[in-house]
């Protein structure tokens, strides 16, 4: 039964990591543009950089 003393906090800790990851992703605006992101993956980043500057 002493295992529980480790396992329950471990489960809670992992859950909390998930919760904070979710809150962080929301705060950093990752849910703002759901349609554009799928296209942006196809751009060559350095190409935009070169065209841009």
């Amino acid at each position: 039964m002493t295992g529980l003393l480790f396992l329950i906090p471990a489960a809670l800790f992992l859950g909390l990591i998930g919760l904070f990851a979710f809150l962080w992703s929301m705060k950093s605006g990752q849910y703002d543009d759901l349609d554009g992101a799928s296209y942006r993956a196809l751009f060559e980043e350095d190409e935009i950089e070169r065209e841009g500057k």
């Binding site: 703002d32 935009i48 065209e51 841009g52 500057k53």
Partner: peptide
């Protein structure tokens, strides 16, 4: 998206331009 962002970023007044497709 690319065209707009790329062209606008050439403008010296613009630091960053970002299109939200949604």
């Amino acid at each position: 998206i690319r065209e707009i962002e790329g062209t606008l970023q050439k403008n010296p007044h613009v630091r960053n331009a970002r299109v939200n497709l949604t």
